[in-house]
Amino acid sequence: MEETVVISGNDITEIIDEAKKSTNKKLIIGPGIIKQRDSFFATKCGVLKFRENPPVFWIDYHQKRYIPVRGERIVGIVVQKGGMSVKVDIGTNENAVLSLLAFEGATKRNKPIIQVGDLVFAQVLGVNQNSETELVCVTSKGKRNGMGVLPAEGFMIDVPINVCRRLLAPECRLLKNLGTKFKYEIAIGMNGRIWVRATSHQATTFICNTLAEIEYLNDDEIQKRTDSILDEFVV
């Protein structure tokens, strides 16, 4: 499907219905699209995109302020500590709340040690207009699955939210190519924050700079960028 530029309020039902005819799988509607009865409308200005496996439509748009969505993973900064929970800055108007029991193996007697200023990689559990956004650091099965307090040796950068979406897209080879050159850990939050830790400060800085660059590149340019990475970094 050709990429289509849309603005908020555009009716994209015909495009989505056409895609439904070509697949037997359940179609997923992603960010930037709303369904009203049997019709679909764009809620953001951007590029309408489609991925076949699994079949999903979404709008790739530039967004600075994060709007919490249940199930999304974020990188947050602990700003206040309480007896059984902490307040976390996730880039929204209001801080989110993270229970100290929402960690793998945590109990009232065995709570994780968290300090103000720590970074956490967490998942949005609940979003309510009348209460604080709730975070957890475990899956529905009680496993951490990569979430929790991030090591202090890493470095966090802020990027536009669409950069995080592009990095997490299956067709993006940038992270895999970086892995052939460096040993590194990364946590990509859908709130526009990326945490990176490599084996040296020089490598960490190079990776962060590379990730920040893709904001200004199209898909073909990103591909060329990934192919040139191995020749650029000199220890």
Rank of each mutant, 00 (worst) to 15 (best):
V56M: 15
W58Q: 09
I59N: 13
I59C: 15
D60L: 06
Y61M: 03
Y61H: 15
Y61W: 12
H62T: 14
H62R: 14
H62D: 13
Q63N: 14
Q63I: 09
Q63E: 15
K64Q: 12
K64C: 07
R65Y: 10
Y66T: 13
Y66C: 12
I67R: 01
I67H: 00
I67L: 04
I67F: 07
P68W: 01
R70P: 10
R70D: 06
R70W: 07
G71Q: 03
E72S: 04
R73P: 05
R73G: 02
I74G: 02
V75P: 07
V75T: 06
I77P: 03
I77A: 09
V78K: 05
G82I: 11
G83M: 15
M84K: 15
V86N: 08
V86D: 03
K87L: 12
I90N: 11
I90M: 14
E94R: 13
A96T: 07
V97W: 06
L100P: 01
L100W: 13
G105Y: 10
G105K: 13
A106P: 13
A106N: 14
K108W: 14
K108I: 13
N110Q: 15
K111N: 12
I114S: 09
Q115K: 13
V116G: 11
G117R: 10
G117A: 10
D118I: 13
L119G: 03
V120W: 00
F121W: 05
A122S: 12
L125W: 04
L125G: 08
G126T: 11
G126F: 06
V127E: 06
Q129E: 14
N130Q: 15
N130R: 06
S131H: 12
E134S: 12
L135K: 00
L135W: 01
V138F: 06
V138L: 00
T139P: 08
S140I: 06
K141T: 08
K141D: 10
K141L: 08
K141Y: 04
M147C: 05
G148F: 02
G148W: 04
G148Y: 00
V149G: 02
V149Y: 00
L150C: 05
E153I: 10
G154W: 03
G154S: 04
M156Q: 10
M156I: 03
V159A: 03
V159R: 00
P160N: 05
I161L: 12
N162M: 07
C164D: 07
C164G: 08
C164H: 04
R166P: 03
R166S: 06
L167D: 04
L167R: 05
L168F: 00
P170K: 04
C172H: 06
R173C: 03
L174S: 07
K176M: 09
K176S: 08
